[in-house]
């Protein structure tokens, strides 16, 4: 079962997603993978990654580092050197980070078709695995008129979110511990 989760920042999305992923892997006796999407660029990022790693300790996740070209993770290896099985359970946290990496690659060029590309890649990822939990961020209710970079990013993320919400079997909004199931 593919699941899409979104909601505001620091609302408990990741924790809920981790629980769903772990339960799914136990019920189906499938390997449990965590797709680490952040590409660290400074000490703050590295500290955040260490904190995330320690938060997941004991959950049984095998970590796969994949910040771009997400479908490549299915033919790759985990951090501990094992071959990835595409039929495992995958927790992808987060769609937001992936889009940043794809849209703003190092070197300064902005990839304007990143939203369409990533929507297609993630649809393929969902189809190939069948057991992925996607986590995104609901960043659409600001009272701001943003610059065009930010506005393009928001529009692209919304396009991906809507694509995933349409194809996933379950869609959940997490709002401060309260969960609403749209599907």
């Amino acid at each position: 079962m593919n699941i899409f989760i979104s909601g505001g920042c620091k609302n408990g999305k990741s924790h809920h997603a981790q629980e769903l992923a772990r339960n799914m892997s136990r019920e189906k006796s499938l390997p449990l993978y965590y797709l680490a999407t952040m590409i660290p660029c400074d000490d703050e990022d590295r500290a955040r990654i260490r904190r995330h790693l320690s938060e997941r300790e004991g959950w049984g996740f095998e970590t796969i580092e994949q910040g771009r070209d997400i479908c490549r993770a299915l033919d790759g290896y985990t951090l501990s050197g094992e071959k990835v099985s595409p039929k495992g359970v995958f927790l992808l946290d987060s769609v937001t980070a992936l889009l940043s990496n794809e849209m703003f690659p190092p070197g300064g060029e902005v990839s304007s078709d990143a939203g369409d590309r990533l929507a297609a890649e993630l649809s393929e990822f969902a189809r190939r695995t069948g057991n992925t939990i996607f986590v995104s961020d609901y960043i659409y209710s600001d009272a701001r008129i943003f610059d065009s970079y930010t506005e393009n990013y928001r529009r692209a993320l919304a396009h991906i979110d809507r694509t995933l919400a349409a194809l996933c079997d379950q869609v959940i909004e997490v709002s401060f511990g309260f969960k609403y199931m749209y599907k």
Binding site: G8, Y140, S141, D142, A143, R144, I145
Partner: peptide, 22 residues
């Protein structure tokens, strides 16, 4: 109508009024 009620309070006074009137 777009819900614009859940972000950071804007610095710009017109955007602040917009948010409240919305």
């Amino acid at each position: 109508m777009t819900d614009i009620s859940q972000g950071i309070v804007p610095m710009d006074p017109a955007e602040r009024s917009w948010r409240e009137m919305a």
